[in-house]
Amino acid sequence: MTRSSKLPVFFYAVLATGLLTLAAIADHHIDVEYAEQMPLAQDSLLLDITRAGDTLVTVGERGHVLTSTDGATWVQAEHVPTRSTLTTVFSTGKRTWAGGHDAVIITSSNKGKTWTQEFFDPDRQQAVMDIHFFDENNGIAIGSYGLYMRTSDGGKNWNEETVDPEIDYHLNSILDLGEGRLLIAGEAGYSYRSFDNGDSWEALDLPYEGSMWGALRASDECVLFYGLRGHVLESCDLGTSWTELETNSIASIPGAAEQDGVILLAANSGVVMTREGSGPFKIHHHSSGVDFAAALPLGDGDFLLVGEEGIHRFPETTGEGESDD
């Protein structure tokens, strides 16, 4: 995609929008609606999943947070200070963060059992779409309409900045490649890279002008962007050049995971795509038929998928049924 008529390719200095630091608000200082305990929370819409040490943590609609130590038995967290839909969850060290609609950000220090609200601003009408922390103090939150915030104190305070001063398209997923190198997959063909841990950003030149919903490190050298209508892009030079990979599917892809050289793409309508090494994608049809949102490797070739109707497995267990194309 040529950007000469829209946007020159150069590093954008990250501009602070005003001098005001967005102070985090502890949940005991404000009136907070806590997520309700629901007997079928495990079967509700879940939008992301991560591993916090030996515990699996998944998040979704109505502030639902569930944890598990085996991927089979799940317990809903009792102290979650939001009823906003949670779209993302991330863990490093002894801390876990989740974010979502109403620009909410919550954090846990006990692997998702209990949570504290760090940020909440429904008036801005933006959603946190992804969170990444480099350590327990320094992190980034990105989201809808160009949302870009950074913290250096574990989320107690968030500084509002900007990736691109000329547009405010959605920023959907952030990928850390180490040594200060970051990628952001975004909306409408606008995606970005940074070589200085997010201090400045450069617009990428992608061969597809549709939205990219996620980013995955596929190997030591290569990354994948994936998103709308089955489009998958691969770069093996830190985003300088991209190749569109053939998936033979028009199912949109919200989630992905890698395990032992196998790439799994979790898509809409029960479609799951797998790729071994540099081979072609193979299409599978999960018997649930649901729209998936995220995937997590479990080991031994197994994956957990979350999305509509909660938590699913791939490959499916005996008796669930699965068809391949």
Results as ranks from 00 to 15, higher is better:
T21K: 07
A293N: 03
V75T: 14
A215G: 04
A41M: 05
G53P: 00
L204G: 04
E166V: 15
E161M: 14
G186L: 10
T92G: 03
E179V: 03
P81E: 06
N110L: 09
G319P: 12
Q76F: 02
S173Q: 05
G289Q: 10
G139E: 05
H101I: 04
L264M: 13
S287Y: 11
T240M: 05
N268C: 06
W201P: 02
M149C: 01
I250N: 14
D121F: 00
D324M: 13
E179A: 15
Y148M: 06
I140F: 10
P315T: 02
I105W: 11
S91V: 04
V271F: 08
Y145Q: 13
T114W: 00
L177S: 08
T274G: 09
V104A: 08
L147G: 03
E160R: 13
A16N: 12
V57A: 12
G277Y: 05
G214A: 13
P254V: 03
D27A: 00
S252T: 15
N110Q: 03
A188P: 02
V262K: 07
A294H: 01
S84W: 01
V290N: 11
V9C: 04
D31A: 10
A16R: 12
T50W: 02
S144Y: 04
T247N: 05
S194F: 08
N197S: 15
L47S: 11
H286Y: 06
A267E: 10
G60I: 11
S323P: 00
E234W: 04
N159T: 14
D43S: 12
L47F: 10
R181N: 11
M1W: 08
G99T: 07
M38F: 01
T162R: 13
H29L: 12
L7M: 14
K113Q: 13
L206R: 01
V104R: 00
S194K: 04
F119R: 09
S4F: 07
P315H: 03
N157P: 01
N268F: 15
Y226V: 01
E61T: 13
G214T: 06
L45A: 03
D325E: 13
G146I: 09
L19N: 14
R62N: 12
D176I: 06
D48C: 11
L7N: 07
G139R: 02
S194W: 00
